[in-house]
Design a protein around this nucleic acid. Structure first.
Lengths: 114, 114
DNA sequence: TCCATGCATATCCGTACACGGATATGTGGC
DNA sequence: GCCACATATCCGTGTACGGATATGCATGGA
């Protein structure tokens, strides 16, 4: 299962959201989803692992899961391909409107098309 | 079907890739995927439409599809949430390297909310 | 050393739905 | 009426997702 498929499941995205705050043990994650059985959560974690989205570390008797930021690189790469065009669109719009105001959110460095 | 599910299919991502270059008529897209039937492509386009990823315009007897950049906003938003942490990680790493501190393997213990 | 904890894995079962082709039909524009 | 599609079915296959259950397996503690 590739990155995009792994991310297509809401539960797995929620798991990643939890892990984005801090690493958590498998059991902790399972308890965060009471409607999911232990093997069920374990399956989700397996998919996330195989997609390279999480990383496991053994600590005592626990398996501590942490987010692997690099695992999101494929999505980021795919998306930036579009972001370039997107921002080009927005830039054109801004230029057209000529509001003269800066982007309030001041997104990360607006990489222009090379 | 939500945005992430719509993007989980490789064919649909390829369609978006084509549309990122220029708008195309439905038939044109269909011909780009010879192994897909006409109703088959039409179904994919429907999913992309309902996910807000493409936009249709009637031109003569053709349906011209174009990418809706805003449709990718949910993915971008979701991803930037992580990109911030990602960059924070890199920053922390830099800070760590600058300060010449302890064990470099304690990476995962360090993810924290800003 | 024996046992409980904390998981991962393996089945089996069942439901649901994605994806595909094939075919038929509907529809708006020319 | 023809073209370019969209939609609707029906069919079939594959597989995701879920629970339930049993087992494997390492670690840490009594």
């Amino acid at each position: 299962m590739d990155t995009f498929e792994a991310l297509s499941d809401p539960t797995r995205r929620q798991v990643l959201d939890l892990l984005s705050r801090q690493p958590r043990a498998a059991g902790e994650l399972g308890r965060a989803f009471p409607s999911t059985s232990q093997p069920g959560m374990s399956r989700h974690l397996r998919i996330l692992r195989e997609a390279g989205l999480v990383h496991v570390r053994k600590q005592d008797r626990h398996r501590v899961y942490a987010l692997r930021w690099e695992g999101l690189a494929p999505v980021d790469a795919w998306l930036s391909k579009y972001r370039n065009f997107w921002e080009a669109e927005l830039d054109s719009l801004e230029a057209f409107l000529d509001s003269g105001k800066a982007d309030p959110k001041s997104r990360q460095a607006r990489s222009r098309r090379p």
